[in-house]
Design a protein around this nucleic acid. Structure first.
Lengths: 231, 231
DNA sequence: ACAAAAGTGTTGAGAGTACACCCATGC
DNA sequence: GCATGGGTGTACTCTCAACACTTTTGT
């Protein structure tokens, strides 16, 4: 098997790249890290790295995520494998892209003592990205927008207890689309996967909102019906 | 980078495996090849092989397909990447799985002078498969069943001109489900992607059926509405 | 004339969509 | 008492789903 230009890899190298989404301040954001090695040194890139010899590709993605974030138990889903020979100038690197969803509050609590420089960027205003990472983000967003309609992935972006307005907000942010409040609530409650608690969330001088919890194990695949309800 | 047990691979090897579907005699079938090397020598497996150093992963899948079938211009779609360390006993082989669809008549015309032993098997009655190939087939079928509802992939299984009954038949075979003729026809024609020709297909002593052609470039993503209409 | 598949409409049920006002709280 | 987001119901439209008979051909 051949050697790449700088001799670092023999044969193929397999990398994982993870698009980690969160919602903060009403905006959908993705985590980027600043590259410390060439190529694209100093450029922003997706968190990721080379898959170890004895770990599964999924495990490598989880590991990268944990190195960057210190959060466990993250929703992670494989996206697509990008295998163009020229995508990495160092040689043949095939990347398996993933996307992941975290709740911002959980993240804020745990993420400290960082090694590499990392930051959240609004998905709509990303800086130029290294490699083909821009394409990966676009692909991830597309998948998320699609999947939110027939699964409950959106719940992964929320805390354990949330108000229906918060849930609706996460749909709106992901879809870049206003939804109708009454229809959204009816549809969500009809699904039978939400349980109203007896707690309320007071935020200032308004009427407090009821908190709900999600009743199912993790992510539910709904009956392919779709949740989009335009405003 | 480490070496695998038999020294054949350095670092990771990347393979592609392709689930090639066709419909023949009212049955959904997949192409399998008989392995000539260990491991699993003599077992049936998906067509596939190692990705070359300077070819893209997609190209490798196409190449494998053409080696096995002699057909060009096949509908091919990446499925998923399987990256468990133990999936191949020779060492670390990560496989990128694809599925592909061909029309049986075209295949029959071109496929000759085969190198490896290969055969079509009904997807519902596959022999034991090498590696984790059974899982890949299951995954491919699931994807196909899902995708047939909001895209026009099913057309890839038919000749250029086809009757509505043949089209319905391909949906039924893929979904393992009878569909209602009137509803199916109305829905298909409403989509505006079919053009009736002035030709008819006569088969014996029944009324001849009108032949239709598909008007769009290749595969159309429909409005996420779904085509399933139970019988 | 009959066997076999082609072809064709209507109706009822349920989901989707549009839309506007009162409620509870903090200040 | 007022500003702010929380919360609720109804009518119309349209798609989905169920269902059976006539037509055309070859033998």
């Amino acid at each position: 098997m051949p050697t790449s230009s700088n001799g670092q890899f023999r044969g193929h190298a397999i990398a994982v790249d993870v698009v980690l989404f969160t919602i903060q301040g009403g905006t959908l954001k993705a985590l980027l890290v600043k590259r410390r090695q060439p190529p694209h040194r100093g450029a922003w890139a997706l968190p990721g790295g080379i898959v170890g010899t004895d770990e599964s590709v999924d495990d490598a993605a989880l590991r990268e995520l944990q190195e960057e974030t210190n959060i466990g138990n993250i929703y992670l889903e494989q996206l697509y494998t990008f295998g163009e020979p020229a995508r990495d100038p160092r040689g043949r690197v095939i990347t398996v892209a993933y996307y992941a969803l975290v709740n911002w509050q959980q993240f804020q609590l745990k993420a400290r003592q960082r090694v590499t420089e990392a930051d959240w960027f609004p998905v709509k205003r990303l800086p130029p990205l290294a490699f083909d990472h821009r394409r990966i983000v676009d692909y991830a967003l597309e998948r998320l927008q699609h999947k939110i309609n027939y699964t409950t992935v959106a719940f992964q972006l929320l805390p354990r207890q949330f108000t229906l307005t918060e849930l609706q907000g996460s749909y709106e942010v992901i879809l870049s689309q206003r939804l109708d409040k009454r229809n959204f609530r009816r549809k969500m409650l009809q699904l039978g996967i939400l349980k109203g608690t007896r707690e309320f969330k007071a935020h200032g001088r308004q009427r407090p909102a009821r908190l709900y919890t999600f009743t199912e194990p993790k992510v539910v695949k709904l009956q392919e019906k779709g949740i989009i309800v335009p405003f």
